[in-house]
Simulated scan of single mutants.
Amino acid sequence: MSNYIHVPPGSPEVPKLDITVSEREGPGCRQGALQLLRRLRPHWRPEEVTLQLFTDGITNKLIGCYVGDITDDVVLVRIYGNKTELLVDRDEEVKSFRVLQAHGCAPQLYCTFNNGLCYEFMQGEALDPEHVCNPDIFRLIARQLAKIHTIHAHNGWIPKSNLWLKMGKYFSLIPTEFADEEVNKRFLSDVPSPQVLQEEMAWMKERLSNLGSPVVLCHNDLLCKNIIYNKKRGDVQFIDYEYSGYNYLAYDIGNHFNEFAGKN
């Protein structure tokens, strides 16, 4: 039994560059990105490179790099958020990325660096809740998800779900109190106690583990914004593999169905 991701033999190696890119916007961020581009796009002239902030989230900052007004070749630089390694196993994320790439389910991963990774930009638009309810689009999503779910574990190994392991890890990170008195008061009154949460998790594990849902390679975070729709090609691709791993097939489907509620 295993819940580890194994990269297929023969997959291209991904260089790891000893470069750190500043999280803060400004000269430091640009300088770090240009250092990466000297390795990835040596023919680009630094003064012609445009950096565009795509997202600035809790777990990462995403910057698109391209020359002039030409966006056919965009290098994405994703900078990990501070202390996000407590939530995300970055080594497993890269392995998931490489496995999905090997099966035509992810863009090209160009490199990793000290606090992030660089990869190919996928042309298209990120979906909104109203899009996923469109039959033409949700059929494309179903096909792409099925393609990922049929990726077999390495050497015929039988995987086990990492759901309970990750939930336990996240549970260990829950704070017990807050310095701000008002925030702490709300926390104690609105959030169930650790004992109640532990009991609820044990109840879920006992019942859900016995439903017989197959354990497959899952995306595990199929939010609307993680689905890129290319109308011209008539296909969808999934991005952001921070939480990818072996899990119950039904979880991946149910998690995505939450998007049909219309909450973004």
Results as ranks from 00 to 15, higher is better:
G57W: 04
G57F: 05
G57R: 06
N60I: 01
K61Q: 05
I63G: 08
I63L: 14
I63D: 09
G64C: 14
D69Y: 08
D69W: 00
I70D: 10
T71Q: 15
D72E: 14
D72K: 04
D72H: 06
V74H: 06
V74W: 03
V74A: 07
L76D: 08
V77L: 11
I79S: 09
N82R: 13
N82Q: 12
T84G: 08
T84S: 06
E85F: 07
D89N: 15
D91Q: 14
K95T: 03
K95H: 05
F97E: 07
R98M: 15
R98S: 15
R98A: 13
Q101Y: 10
Q101C: 09
A102V: 06
H103K: 03
C105T: 06
P107R: 09
C111H: 07
F113S: 05
F113H: 04
N115E: 07
N115M: 10
G116F: 00
G116W: 02
C118N: 06
Y119V: 03
E120K: 11
M122L: 14
Q123K: 11
A126Y: 00
L127I: 09
D128I: 12
H131M: 13
P135E: 05
F138G: 00
F138D: 06
L140W: 06
L140K: 15
I141Q: 02
A142L: 10
L145S: 10
I148R: 09
I148S: 06
I151E: 03
I151W: 03
H152Y: 00
H152S: 11
H152N: 00
A153M: 03
H154E: 12
H154F: 15
N155A: 14
I158W: 01
K160V: 15
S161D: 04
N162A: 12
W164K: 08
L165F: 11
K166P: 00
K166R: 13
K169G: 09
K169H: 12
Y170N: 13
F171M: 13
F171I: 04
S172P: 01
S172W: 04
L173F: 07
I174M: 14
P175N: 09
